[in-house]
Design a protein around this nucleic acid. Structure first.
Ligand code: MN
Ligand code: MN
Ligand code: ZN
Ligand code: ZN
Lengths: 147, 147
DNA sequence: GAAATAAATGGAATGATTCTAATTTCTGTG
DNA sequence: CACAGAAATTAGAATCATTCCATTTATTTC
């Protein structure tokens, strides 16, 4: 009988959950499983469809719950940052953005041509990008944290 | 009498619009104006509030319409890419993403430590990032475009 | 195995964005 | 200048990903 989830990943999951005091449930295992199965960056809804083939009664809310847990445990990443209203920027030079977790502010971070071209060279042959988005998330300066 | 929108930008707007056969309306001018006024990456709603002080009857739909036009004319950028469902990814190594406009596929693009550290050095003093998101948007390989 | 706690569930609520259909504004031409 | 046609604006409805809530079910602890 072949395990759906390979031993290594099964352990990774178990440990990650235990270390955060979260329970290893059928649902969480299965969600993790389908994400590993096909590395195509599925949406929550895609995942729901796939998981339902194994757990037909799983709800979409649970998919979201499981995903939150897996992200929290750093077992999966979400490709788009926090869903939040789109922001607009008049800076027409190439630049990156810094989102401060503390204040919510968004700063421009200038990007010199040098670095920009290094970043562009990351792309393998056959890929042509017309847009690059680089953003940092963390803590900004003088956050006046009263700590 | 001081013009609300500086001459240079006023011209940029006029030319950009004309070159795409779009009309220079009060609403578009005003939206562009408030975005330039305060470079804080406002949301559509923020912009609506600010523009309403000058055009009290402007609708939110128009704000979105104007923003679409300004983005199309490359006068402003939107900081979050197209609003679309969040995607999830099990790749735990540092990597970038490539979104293909043609097929909608999302690919992982590996990021060596070298490049990663170059990117990190972009941040000015005082900023600490715990997350970096780098994504490319464009056309992927062998897109089988029947052209 | 019962109490206590965490998780799962279905459905309602949210909220950013998009769509629609009606009205208003522009622009080019006569 | 008037007018036809095109483009833009508007209010409100519709979408849709995500979150919230109250209830039920599963897990862990004792
Ligand atoms: Mn989330
Ligand atoms: Mn848009
Ligand atoms: Zn910016
Ligand atoms: Zn990825």
């Amino acid at each position: 009988m072949k395990l759906a989830l390979p031993e290594t990943e099964r352990n990774r999951l178990k440990h990650a959950l235990k270390s955060r005091n979260r329970r290893p449930t059928r649902q969480r295992t299965c969600v993790y499983e389908v994400i590993l199965e096909k590395r195509d960056h599925p949406t929550a809804d895609d995942i729901h469809l796939r998981v339902r083939e194994k757990l037909p009664s799983i709800s979409l809310a649970t998919i979201y719950n499981c995903l939150d847990t897996l992200v929290e445990c750093e077992l999966v990443k979400q490709v788009h940052l926090d869903r939040a209203p789109t922001r607009f920027c008049p800076n027409r030079n190439p630049h990156a953005h810094f989102h401060c977790r503390v204040t919510g502010q968004v700063y421009d971070v200038s990007l010199d041509d040098e670095r920009l071209s290094i970043i562009e060279k990351t792309l393998p042959d056959g890929f042509t990008a017309d847009t690059i988005e680089l953003s940092f998330i963390g803590q900004g300066p003088k956050s006046d944290t009263i700590s």
